[in-house]
Amino acid sequence: MTKLALKVAAVEQLTPLVKRFRFEDPTGAPLPVFSGGAHITVEMPNGDTIRRNSYSLISDPYDPSGYEIAVRREDTGRGGSSHMHSAVAEGDTITVSVPANLFQLDLRARKHVLIGGGIGITPFLSQLRQLDREQKPYELHYAARSRAEAAGIALLPEAAHIHVHISDEGNRMDLGAILDGQPLGTHVYTCGPEGLIAAVADQAARLGWPKSAVHSEAFTAPPPGAPFEVTIASSGQIVPVKADQSLLEALEAAGVEIDYSCRGGACGRCETAVTACDGQIEHNDHWLSADERAAQKKIMPCMSRFKGTRLELDL
């Protein structure tokens, strides 16, 4: 994974829970440009562990002068977002990955419908800049509970094809009305809570949309859970995984070599074979199929955990 050491150029409080960060090259060198919907992985050193969270880029994808992300503080999470909120300040140095994209626009589409819920608005901010540049028709729907919480309002431009739905103001998003009657060749993209993604998928299926026109990205950080241990098959090494640590982070801290990319259970890069399993794998990823999950022969260490007596990994 190619990494960049950047300078935190600006930090801005957008809402009580959401901050925007801008990173630039310390020498002012241009950064790699990217595609709408791309994310970077941000490294957060924390004691003996390096926590790495992925965040969607919200800046202009064709602008190499800097990268911007918006981070919502999750007080019930493992501390990645609260680290960003409390410990990262202007002038700091921060290590990030080059951009990668698991949520790209299908530029063949005759029209793009973007649906964002809460902080799930973030990947669309770069996408809509790309759509504007490429002069592709689109409409964007942004749903938030209250205006005070809606970081997207500060981030979205005002435009006729950008619609804000605030449920506290009685303006709930009507997915049926949004999806019904769209022209053939439309693609829909959803990012936000699992419930929203499922609701869009259900509504699209009811209206007979093909699955290949329905895209989503559930941006989830690894959930905390009970501590557990894994055994490394090649060395016999036993690696403890703490409650607020992901299996991938624990393996990295223990010096076990393992590949990764998204750290959100979506890209498949860290897929690892399970050589012995006496217990239950808690699959939290979006990569393995239902059959693969049931077989317990594979695990995605970036997201998944384990309950039981013995888990041995082919590493």
Binding site: T2, P32, F34, V98, P99, A100, S261, C267, G268
Partner: peptide, 11 residues
């Protein structure tokens, strides 16, 4: 194919 899909920017 699996390999190619995982090829990232800069690699």
């Amino acid at each position: 194919l699996k390999f190619l899909l995982a090829v990232g920017q800069g690699q």
